[in-house]
Structures are given as C-alpha cells and as structure tokens.
C-alpha cells in the first residue's frame, strides 16, 4: 500500500506557535522582520499570530523608540518544552503535530 506524498508540509497552529516562539527565543528580543523571516509566514498571518501569542501570555511586546520588540515569557519557554515533548510522543505513534 503506497502512502500518497503530501504536496506541502502541513503546519498545525501549535507548530506555528512553536516556530515563532523559537525564533524569538533564539534572538532574546526579536523584531517583527526577524520573526517573519524565521517563521515563514505572511505579514498578515504573523500579525494575527503575534496578537494571539501576546494574549495567551507566551510573548510580551515592548517598544524601544520606534522599534517594536518581542520577548518570550516563562510560559512561552514552557510551551516550547511541552511542544517538544508532545512532538516526540506523537512521533512515537507515527503522527505529525
């Protein structure tokens, strides 16, 4: 039995959250353009996700003059750890998350 190839790798909302948070975590304080580049999202979608992440308490938004910066919270760090744990768990069952 042949499994059909997926045309484009599906990214769940959780994975997109994790990708954005990792991009911010790597940078310490990250600018929107850096996150945009690292998370491979359109500007509109990224803006919506950043609002979501802020509202969920996973990221904090700060302003340094004209620059808007994002910083990961403790809850955000924990989200990344839990995501990695669940990625391994789902992988054990042959599932992608």
């Amino acid at each position: 039995m042949k499994v059909p190839q997926e045309k484009q790798k599906y990214r769940s909302k959780g994975r997109i959250f994790a990708d954005i948070l990792k991009a911010v975590q790597d940078e310490g304080k990250a600018r929107t353009t850096h996150i945009l580049y690292k998370s491979n999202l359109s500007h509109d979608r990224l803006s919506k996700y950043l609002i979501n992440l802020e509202e969920s308490g996973l990221l904090v938004r700060t302003e340094d003059g004209e620059k808007v910066l994002y910083e990961i919270t403790d809850k955000g760090q924990r989200f990344i750890a839990e995501f990695k744990r669940m990625e391994a768990f789902a992988d054990a069952f042959g599932l992608d998350i």
Binding site: S12, K13, G14, R78, F79, E82, F83, R85, M86, F89, A90, L95, D96, I97
Partner: peptide, 10 residues
C-alpha cells in the same frame, strides 16, 4: 499535551 498544543490528534 493537548492542553498546551491544542492539536486534534492528541
């Protein structure tokens, strides 16, 4: 995991 990630598979 589901509580954190909200993934239907979990």
């Amino acid at each position: 995991g589901y509580r954190w990630v909200k993934e239907p598979s979990l």
